[in-house]
Simulated assay, not measured.
Amino acid sequence: MLIYLLSRSESLYTTKRIFQAGINGKHNIRVINYMECDLLVEHGEYKVIYENEELITPDFVIPRIGSSVTFYGCTVVRHFQMMGSKVLNKPEGILNSRDKFRSLQLMVQGGIPIPKTFFSNDLYYAEQMVKDHLGYPFIMKVLEGTQGQGVFLVKNEQEAEALIDEHVSKKTRVILQEFISEFSGKDIRVIVVYGKVVATMMRQAKEGDFRSNIHAGGRGLIVELTAEEEQIAINSLSVLGLDMGGVDILRSDKGPMVIEVNSSPGFEGIEGVTKIPVAEMMMESIEQNF
């Protein structure tokens, strides 16, 4: 198979692992920086020009699209798709996962449990909504944030007023979410590929922090999923239209809840903790579903 791995850097851990898994599988795999792809429609044909070269149509495209360049990245993925290539994660699924509130809307529609969440264009009634529905403390998330950045634990009215005013003045879009105190500082990351759980770990925040992300200083631990959690993870990707992704789950007193789905999850933390070769398992699934 000719595979294009869309990534902005060949040196990233996950990019290197997927590339090596492709080589091990005896595929012709090439890393393409999607931000340097020029897209052309000519005489009813779709073409991609890369470094002054017209790329031949690949059999398969694996997108690793950064959150800050989602729009252009998805446009490139769609172009390859219209050229006739199969893709791991269609652009619509990536866009669904990147819009945090839209992803929550779709998951609720699909019967996936989530924490109580508030979103508004102007946040004028935000403090009242917190008092009436969320309570203190609560979580504030910047919609474009990743890897634990732009996530705040708001403990009281004074902090809420200051943060809300700050984000209103910057015109930053945020969501406010119920704080699950019984699972504070922890979450469960589940990697799902083509409807199958391939790896899972619990992420534990460093002392004094509530963010469990490895990039924020958290650590990974071995964890076993319940049957309910496994099905929730699989269903979450299905309702968002994703073939592959990372699902983040909290264990609340009301049962498991999904807080986020990542369409381009990193493999470094979960491979290091579980010793499961996620990249090779993903490549095997691609081969089986091609």
Rank of each mutant, 00 (worst) to 15 (best):
Asn235Ala: 13
Gln105Pro: 01
Arg219Ser: 15
Asp248Phe: 05
Ile62Phe: 12
Met283Thr: 07
Gly272Gln: 11
Met282Gly: 03
Glu166Cys: 14
Asn235Phe: 04
Val130Phe: 02
Arg219Pro: 13
Leu40Glu: 07
Gly220Arg: 10
Leu153Asp: 06
Val247Gln: 01
Leu134Ser: 14
Gly218His: 00
Ile164Gly: 06
Gly145Ala: 02
Gln109Met: 10
Gly195Trp: 03
Lys86Pro: 09
Leu106Asn: 00
Glu53Asp: 12
Arg251Ser: 04
Gly145Thr: 00
Arg64Glu: 00
Glu260Gly: 03
Met129Phe: 15
Ser85Leu: 11
Ser103Met: 08
Ile114His: 12
Val108Ser: 10
Leu176Glu: 01
Glu159Met: 04
Ser9Met: 01
Ile112Pro: 06
Gly185Trp: 11
Val190Cys: 02
Lys26Asn: 15
Gly110Ala: 03
Glu54Phe: 06
Ser285Gly: 12
Asn213Met: 09
Lys155Ser: 08
Leu134Pro: 11
Val41Cys: 09
Arg211Tyr: 04
Pro137Met: 03
Ser9Cys: 03
Ala216Val: 13
Gly145Gln: 06
Phe138Gly: 11
Ser7Cys: 10
Leu2Pro: 07
Phe71Gln: 13
Tyr72Thr: 04
Val190Ser: 01
Gly145Asp: 04
Arg211Ile: 02
Asp132Phe: 08
Leu5Phe: 04
Pro265Gln: 09
Leu12Arg: 05
Gly84His: 10
Glu178Phe: 01
Tyr34Ile: 02
Gly93Leu: 05
Pro137Gly: 02
Lys131Pro: 12
Pro58Met: 01
Gly218Arg: 05
Tyr46Gly: 05
Gln105Lys: 12
Asp248Glu: 05
Phe118Tyr: 15
Ala227Tyr: 09
Glu182Met: 01
Asn24Gly: 14
Gln149Glu: 13
Lys47Phe: 10
Ser238Met: 03
Gln204Val: 15
Lys275Trp: 07
Ser236Thr: 07
Glu178Val: 01
Phe138Tyr: 12
Asn121Val: 13
His27Met: 11
Gly185Asn: 03
Val76Ile: 13
Tyr4Phe: 11
Glu166Val: 10
Ser97Val: 11
Glu287Ile: 07
Gly150Thr: 11
Lys26Ala: 11
Pro265Cys: 10
Thr75His: 13
Asp187Val: 06
Phe152Ile: 03
Met257Phe: 05
Asn213Phe: 03
Asp165Lys: 14
Lys171Gln: 10
Ile164Asn: 10
Asp253His: 08
Asp165Thr: 11
Tyr50Arg: 08
Pro256Arg: 07
Leu5Lys: 08
Gly208Cys: 12
Gly195Glu: 07
Met129Arg: 12
Gly218Thr: 00
Arg203Ala: 00
Asp132His: 13
Ser67Gly: 06
Leu221Gly: 03
Val247His: 01
Leu240Gly: 00
Ile222Gly: 09
Met244Ser: 14
Pro256Val: 02
Val239Lys: 09
Thr200Phe: 05
Arg251Leu: 03
Leu221Ala: 14
Val197Met: 04
Ser103Val: 08
Tyr136Pro: 08
Lys171Ile: 04
Arg219Ala: 15
Gly111Pro: 01
Thr146Ile: 15
Asp59Val: 01
Arg173Asn: 14
Glu36Leu: 13
Ser9Tyr: 07
Gln147Lys: 14
